[in-house]
C-alpha cells in the first residue's frame, strides 16, 4: 500500500494541467481505480482481518484524495500565475503626467514676502502705477527743488503725472483714506529710467508701513529682523547702517551677511561680506503733516525692498533682464515650486 502512494506521487509530479490530473485520479480513485479495487476486496476477507484491512485502505484513500486536491490547487495557482504574467507592464515607462506650468519667479517671491507679512498681521494695499507727481514726490518730503529727486530717475507722463518710482504713494493714499492704527504692505510694479544687468526700467517693490502712537526705531529693527530671518533663514546675520531717504528720519539700510561667501568676501558682495537688502526708517514728520496727521501724536515706521533683488539672491539669477524676457525654458525652472 505504501508503494501505491509512492507511485502515485511519482506519477503526478510532472502533471501541469487539470485534465491529466483527472485521468490519473480516475486510475486510482475512479470506479475502476486501483484503490477502489482494494476497497472492494474487503468482502473477501475474514471478519477479524476485515477491520484492520478496512482501516488501512481507508487511510490510503484519504491520503490519496488529499494528495490529489493539493495538486489540483497548485495547478490552478500555476495557471493563474501564467495568465497574469502575460499582462506584465513595463514599469520603467514614464507615467502620464498632466502638463504643469509655472508661476513667475517674481510671483513666487512676492507671495513669500506677502505671506510673511500677513503672518505678522499686515494687510495688503494697492495703488495706481501711473501716479500724480504730488503723491510720488511732494507729499513724501521730496519737493521739486530738492536734490533728493535725483535719487529717482523718473518716467514722466504729461500734466503732473508720472510712472511711480516707488510704491510709497500708496502709503499716502492709505494714510488719507483709512483710520490709524495701520499696518500694511504695498507690493507692486515701479518704474525708473535705468537699464543694465542689475537695473530694469520696470521692477517690483514691496513697501510697508506701521502707524501707531508709540513706535520707535527699535521696533523697526524688530520687524525687519523677523522678516529677513523668515525669508533668508533663521541664522541670517543682519546689520543696520544709517542712510538717507527723504521720507524717513532716522533712516537705515539693512544688509544681510552675503549668502554666497558667508561674510568672507566674494564678487557678489564686492568683497564686503554683506549684501544691501532693504531700506527703512521712522516716518518723517513732514510726511505725516502732508497727509493731515499730527506728528506729535502719530508715529510711523516704513520700509521697502526690491523683489527682483530678493529673487536674484534666492535663485542665483545674475541678470535682471531674464525676468522680463520670458523665455519659456527660463520660466519652466520654477515649475512646482511650492516647496523648496
Amino acid at each position: 500500500m505504501e508503494e501505491i502512494l509512492e507511485k502515485l506521487k511519482q506519477e503526478i509530479k510532472e502533471i501541469h494541467n487539470l485534465e491529466s490530473l483527472k485521468k490519473v485520479k480516475a486510475a486510482y480513485l475512479g470506479k475502476k481505480g486501483c484503490i477502489t479495487k482494494l476497497l472492494k476486496n474487503i468482502s473477501t476477507l475474514s471478519a477479524e482481518k476485515r477491520k484492520n484491512y478496512g482501516e488501512k485502505v481507508n487511510r490510503l484513500k484519504r491520503e490519496a484524495e488529499k494528495i490529489f486536491s493539493q495538486k489540483s490547487e497548485s495547478i490552478k495557482k500555476e495557471i493563474e500565475n501564467l495568465s497574469l504574467e502575460r499582462e506584465k507592464l513595463d514599469i520603467t515607462l514614464p507615467g502620464r503626467r498632466y502638463a504643469k506650468g509655472s508661476l513667475h519667479p517674481l510671483s513666487i517671491v512676492l507671495r513669500e514676502i506677502e505671506d510673511i507679512f500677513e503672518g505678522l498681521n499686515f494687510s495688503i494695499e494697492e495703488g495706481p502705477e501711473i501716479e500724480y507727481e504730488l503723491y510720488n514726490f511732494d507729499m513724501l518730503n521730496m519737493p521739486k527743488e530738492h536734490p533728493a529727486r535725483d535719487m529717482h530717475d523718473t518716467f514722466y507722463i504729461d500734466e503732473g503725472m508720472l510712472l511711480r518710482t516707488h510704491t510709497s504713494p500708496v502709503q499716502i493714499r492709505v494714510l488719507k483714506e483709512k483710520v490709524p492704527p495701520l499696518m500694511f504692505i504695498s507690493p507692486g510694479k515701479v518704474y525708473r529710467r535705468d537699464a543694465d544687468i542689475s537695473h530694469s526700467p520696470m521692477f517690483h517693490q514691496v513697501e510697508g508701513m506701521i502707524v501707531d502712537k508709540k513706535l520707535s526705531f527699535s521696533h523697526l529693527k524688530g520687524i525687519m529682523t523677523v522678516f529677513l530671518r523668515k525669508f533668508f533663514g533663521e541664522e541670517t546675520e543682519l546689520r543696520f547702517r544709517p542712510s538717507y531717504f527723504p521720507f524717513t528720519e532716522p533712516s537705515a539700510e539693512v544688509d544681510i551677511q552675503c549668502i554666497v561667501c558667508k561674510g568672507n568676501g566674494c564678487r557678489l558682495c564686492s568683497y564686503t561680506g554683506f549684501l544691501e537688502i532693504l531700506g527703512c526708517g521712522v516716518v518723517h514728520p513732514n510726511v505725516f503733516k502732508a497727509a493731515g496727521y499730527d506728528p506729535e501724536i502719530w508715529k510711523g515706521l516704513a520700509f521697502g525692498m526690491g523683489v527682483e533683488r530678493m529673487a536674484m539672491l534666492k535663485y542665483g539669477i545674475d541678470d535682471i533682464r531674464l525676468f522680463f524676457e520670458n523665455d519659456y525654458r527660463f520660466l519652466k525652472n520654477f515649475s512646482l515650486t511650492a516647496v523648496t
Partner: peptide
Amino acid sequence: EDIAEEVARIYGYNRIPSILPSTPLLSQ
C-alpha cells in the same frame, strides 16, 4: 528727529535693541 538720527548713527545702529511692536491689529 534729525538730531535723534545724528545721535543714533554715532552711537551705532547695531547697539539699538530689536523689539517687535505691539500694534493690536488684525490684518484685513
